[in-house]
Design a protein around this nucleic acid. Structure first.
Lengths: 121, 121
DNA sequence: GGAACAGTTGAACAATGATTCATGTGTTCA
DNA sequence: TGAACACATGAATCATTGTTCAACTGTTCC
């Protein structure tokens, strides 16, 4: 794998989140904040895949998928290595894999869409 | 706390992520995908806080902060309860708290911004 | 070389979204 | 009642962004 990542037990941030770190984290999380990219990442979570196959599996056009892959590459979340004509894509890190897992897990256990009016006495 | 949430040991998704779930997860993650909201959530992670104080601590105008709080409320990530003139805001869940923790942790351990050209032989 | 395949890239477009400004609602206290 | 405070809300603006269309690079095989 190249880059390992030990799973975090229960990581409470000791230091306060500053604006710079917030921007960094927010930027990285934007990669998971869209259905298309999330499907791409979730699929790559199961194993490497070529670009065209990937596009087909997540149900989007090659061009659109390639654009998103470029973004994910630029962010360092995925890597693409040429193999003949095709480019095999895979997740960069175990951190990426775990980030995806944790995000999906926690969000799935959330009560979403419960719009409550802003507090009534 | 009201709503508890046991920490996930190492949750690998057994089932494939469908489009509907992807949309749900993506929507929830958009809440963490902006510096302003992330700062708000990270601050609330440390404990409840009134709206104006919160806005001051994260360095944004009350109006802007209120708009984002409304969004977070609608998503069910935070709750606001009136207490006199002011409205105390806090995270809804332990899931929200853990989601924030895990996101920050993993992203901080990422090698971001390493834009690599799309594979060279 | 040329055709077919695999993927990338750029411009353009529509949609979404975060912030600001101004105003409105609700609450306390004099 | 009225002023001051705490917060919410609506419209408008400006910036991002995801997708499509079209063209382009690179690779294999005849």
């Amino acid at each position: 794998m190249g880059h390992g990542a030990a799973p975090p037990p229960s990581s409470a941030p000791r230091t306060r989140l500053d604006a710079a770190s917030a921007a960094k984290v927010a930027t990285a999380l934007q990669a998971l904040a869209t259905p298309s990219r999330l499907l791409i990442l979730a699929r790559l979570r199961e194993g490497p895949l070529a670009a065209t196959e990937l596009a087909a599996e997540v149900g989007m056009e090659q061009s659109a998928c390639s654009h998103q892959l470029r973004l994910l590459r630029t962010l360092g979340l995925v890597v693409g290595t040429r193999s003949g004509r095709q480019v095999m894509y895979s997740l960069y890190d175990d951190h990426v894999a775990e980030l995806i897992d944790q995000a999906i897990y926690h969000v799935e256990h959330l009560h979403l869409g419960i719009s409550d009016p802003p507090a009534r006495p």
